[in-house]
């Protein structure tokens, strides 16, 4: 790659102008009032398959907007949690609660997957994550 072009493109002004013009994102079913619709399609022996799945997600009775998708093996992914795959939408939402506790005000700290929200942003709890105990098991992949 041309070094001069790279150097010019790396200038903060060039990078910031590029980002300001970058699309805001075209995610999977971003949801509307907690309702996410996904469509999987495939072809088999001359037949076209289409499977529509609708998720209506609420946490504490409030609709949750989740940018999720479902692949043809039935696994879920969420663009807010880029390094995970999920077999279960429940596990996906549990992890969202753990990683984004500011988005889930209220709620108790006992039981459940997260063992509370001590690991959340803005908390003043050193080493908290390593000491949390939850229901065990992992949501990943």
């Amino acid at each position: 790659m041309d070094k001069d072009k790279l150097t010019r493109a790396a200038e903060p002004t060039a990078l910031s102008e590029y980002l300001a013009g970058m699309p805001m994102g075209q995610m999977h079913g971003h949801g509307n009032m907690g309702r996410v619709e996904t469509v999987r399609t495939d072809d088999h022996k001359g037949h076209h398959i289409s499977i529509k799945t609708i998720y209506e997600i609420e946490v504490d009775g409030k609709p949750l907007m989740v940018p999720l998708g479902v692949d043809n093996s039935g696994q879920l992914h969420c663009h807010a949690l880029p390094n995970y795959q999920f077999k279960s939408a429940i596990d996906l939402v549990k992890l969202l609660i753990d990683v984004f506790p500011k988005d889930f005000t209220g709620g108790g700290s006992s039981g459940g997957h997260s063992g509370g929200q001590s690991g959340g942003h803005g908390q003043q709890d050193s080493q908290s994550g390593n000491q949390r105990e939850g229901s065990g098991g992992h949501p990943h992949m």
Binding site: M27, H30, N130
Partner: peptide
């Protein structure tokens, strides 16, 4: 959780080998 960017002002967060 909705995949949007928001502003904040806080310290860095790490949780090595989180059990959850």
């Amino acid at each position: 959780s909705a995949g949007e960017l928001v502003g904040t002002d806080r310290g860095l967060w790490r949780v090595f080998a989180s059990s959850d």
